[in-house]
Amino acid sequence: MGAMILRRLAVAVFSLIGVVVITFALTRVLPGDTAAYFAGPAASREAIEQLRHSLGLDKPAAEQFADYVAALARGDLGNSLTTGQPVLSDLLSRLPASAELTLLGLLVSLAIAIPFGILAAVKPGSFVDHACRLVTTAGVSLPVFFTGLLLVYVFYFILGWAPAPLGRLDVFLSAPPTVTGFFLIDSALAGDWETFRGALSQLVLPVLTLAIFALAPIARMTRAAMLAVLTSDFVRTARASGLTPWSVLITYAFRNALLPVVTTLGMVFSFLLGANVLVEKVFAWPGIGSYAIEALIASDFAPVQGFVLAMAVMYVLLNLLIDVLQGLIDPRARTAT
């Protein structure tokens, strides 16, 4: 197991080097002239060139890249021209907002999709099975920004059940003292239940949007994996041994079905990281996704590079986590190369 993790880490280092090169190259080919944008529409030619020089944008690409890597090694992701802050601190301060949203979205989708998938597989052709098929089809065919807008339209605009989609907290509430950065946890720790309710009500719609998006692949994979496992030889053995239906279903069938489900989970989570950007935009969520979009529109390189890098690191860590989980579930995966 330890050797496997080390091997995966070595591979991860190489993928990260690739990501650094690509993020650098990507921001250079994006349309828009940063110097011109920040100098403002009234700036003279000389002023723009001066700004370009002070930003180091007139150096040869190779030199710029060397500067970039050297800075990265120091943990310096550059400064955002829009906020004037170091990108790293911007990202770190906004990360909890994104993480709270994404993780809750994943949790909610798991809590619905897995029991749903299991029930659908246990009783093929039943009402649950048909419902499962309907939901998964809907989840696949609805784009995430559309689901988000639809939910806002119905639950905020028409029914008025949900608060305005304007960030993590109502303007009248103040953020709880930071411990984890997750408002739900921090407000609960502080015993501030009013803030807790406020944060929760703001979370409901964006979390649902993400959950609906993630639900479909997880439910479908759970159902398919359970169907396959339930007809397998070892489940037949378990039944022939008189084990109770519950232990056949959970200890024998579901644990084996978890293998493909966990793999899917890794994929779903990386999709979620992308979908998150759109959801944050729709709900004015102050996370790293909306930060990156604003920077992108402003041709502000450093935050975009920082965002892509942060995503890549998360993606690599996520895959590592998936591998560890696989190893915990399946003894065969521990020794696999």
Binding site: F234, R236, A240, N256, I329, D330
Partner: peptide, 25 residues
């Protein structure tokens, strides 16, 4: 009743023993 009999009073062995056992237990 049958679940109490299976595995206790009547038990069964299958062909292809490698797939008849739970691979991750």
């Amino acid at each position: 009743t049958l679940r109490g009999i299976r595995g206790r009073d009547i038990s069964m062995i299958f062909q292809n023993p490698r797939t008849a056992l739970n691979p991750i237990r």
